[in-house]
Nucleic acid binder design. Structure first.
Lengths: 205, 205, 205, 205
DNA sequence: AATGAATGAGAATTCATTCAT
DNA sequence: CATGAATGAATTCTCATTCAT
């Protein structure tokens, strides 16, 4: 039961563990109530401590979202970079990126929800310039995949790639708002159907 | 108050006009900053008056979003009902509903943004039960269209209609967050390409 | 009884008056309890309002001291500049500067107390760089008077002017901590005796 | 450290030493930041430990200033009593008291700074009644010296002794705020010039 | 002796709302 | 209709203090 057993309670690992635990709790609350509407007290309640106690671990409410989002984005870009760096064709890259995205939703669901709901507002804050930067890279990455696909004749040329990009951008993360890892559909299955839908459409032959 | 004589109808009209004006301003601000994060003072600033003065026109901040959202939803359901009541086939109904939705975005952009970003949180409040009700109807409406389409052989049967429904629900309003009525693509053109994408996919033949 | 009678309550003058009133109250409290140890609530209590209400008038506790100190310093430097610009000899300048200083104590007693007790700590804050600047000017002004006096043979040459300067700097404002305008000694009489003491000493001939 | 047997006397001494060390650090920090504005954490940082650890050594933050001030005052009064009890004339007593004061500044600089800046506020606290008592004795001592000097014809009779007393009270400790034991002027030299200034003034013959 | 993690009271500040004018 | 001034509850954050290890 005791959450610290294996690694001695005084190690840096235990400390990082506690931090991660608290961030997971905070992410959950921010995701469900909205960042601005969530009070520090609510996060603390969820973590089983008093409001002020959180400040032993974090400098501010802002510092919490910051760490939640940057941890997620760092991991996400590592995954995306692995894909785009592996020399696949446009269609395969498309497949792989979507699959990675759903894997991210699986692993970082609350962070993804926060990312989706709050980035626009947070990005105004100098502390979160990396959000704008991440959006820029995301756009570049997808446009490059789409353009290459059109050039190679794999994707239709009669649609505005800018529009397709926006469509993908806006839809790739939305599953985070309803996905449950213990639901009837696995992340991989959702990804598969999503890919079919976007690539082939929902019309019967 | 005191010097309103004769033309009481045009006075009431002017009053309603002012109200609508203020709501439009408020919607704009709520949409761009987020409802919870927007202060009454910010709305008042944007309307060129002092914070307290808004309370001559509205009972509360909540009353403002309420009116913004219910006005939008009333109009939206009138349009949807017109479509679903006109005896079209599944594919045509799909077409018409999507087209209506993009017309709504064109007419009520800020309200749509607020609806999308805040309804989940607002719905907890008894005052906004109509939001949950609207979501329920929306689900029913789309599932009925999709199921009928699968039955009629117009839509693929190998995809989970629940998943398709969610996909549509989550994507139909997102254009509101970037759509500009003076942008390069008209609402109708965006709707057309969106329909193509969802029905036929982005793969070249 | 009503504090606003003569000037209509809606004028800018009345507004500035209220502001000045509140600052006078705040200065009194800061001076007697110490800035850091004073709570905003204490200031508000003394002003007969609730803590939050002060924020209608001022941005922050810091903004209050800021205005208190800068108002005082602006006036003080106007007076000092008048003296140093009037071409008096060293001894007369000395007289006049001391007299002005005691007049300042008479007019701005709480501000002077705050200035004396808190400037060193406040000066670290970028908002209060003008405090350091004021100290620098004060030093320059006095050293120039003292050096000139020594050169002219009016002041003794066997004392370190740097030390005399510090001595004056540290003593000129201290009367603020015990001075009462309704006490037995007037500001002018205190100034006179202070000047005698510093110029001639306390030894009998 | 852990197996401390036998030499319990040197252990107690070591303990007292550590205590004194910590108090010296605390005094330094209180003096430079102001008591109220200093956090326990800042003191602990300066001492190279964590905030909570200080509570092994001291009961409270208050207990720290208390010990700092009372240690200083005890020593100061021992020195003053030695002077006043040695049957000197008024002028010599004056000399000796001033010289002792500067020796105190040399030895207890941070404590003197705290004494000067904080006693008025601390004195309100029952724990620090000895501060008010010390001020009373100080006043009595100086007034007695000054009155005797006027009576003996050594000090001028045309100045208010109450004013002279205040002047001395307010000036005698101020050097503490800028004095550095490694500066160009020794404590004795500063005392000498101070005495000349106060006794003979700064006017050239 | 010292650490790490908390507590809990209270600080500054924010903000929806009220209301006399 | 709108202003200006206030209220009061809630919010973020701070900090002296405690205590098990």
């Amino acid at each position: 039961m005791s959450p610290r057993r294996r690694d001695s309670s005084s190690t840096a690992a235990a400390r990082a563990g506690r931090r991660a635990e608290l961030l997971a709790t905070a992410a959950e609350v921010f995701a469900s109530r909205g960042y601005a509407a969530t009070t520090v007290r609510e996060v603390a309640d969820a973590a089983g401590m008093l409001g002020g106690s959180l400040y032993y671990h974090f400098d501010s409410k802002e510092a919490m979202v910051d760490e939640i989002l940057s941890t997620f984005l760092t991991d996400m870009w590592a995954a995306y970079d692995r894909v785009t760096g592996s020399g696949l064709g446009a269609r395969e890259t498309f497949h792989a990126l979507i699959a990675e995205s759903f894997r991210m939703i699986d692993r970082y669901r609350p962070a993804v929800v926060i990312y989706q709901n709050e980035s626009k507002h947070l990005a105004a804050n100098p502390r979160f310039t990396y959000l704008a930067e991440s959006m820029r890279r995301f756009r570049e990455m997808w446009l490059s995949v789409l353009d290459r696909g059109v050039l190679d004749g794999e994707f239709r040329a009669d649609l505005d790639t800018g529009l397709i990009y926006r469509f993908i951008r806006d839809t790739v993360w939305v599953a985070a708002s309803w996905y449950r890892s213990d639901g009837p559909l696995s992340a991989d299955e959702i990804a598969r159907q999503y890919i079919v839908m976007v690539l082939e459409g929902i019309t019967a032959d």
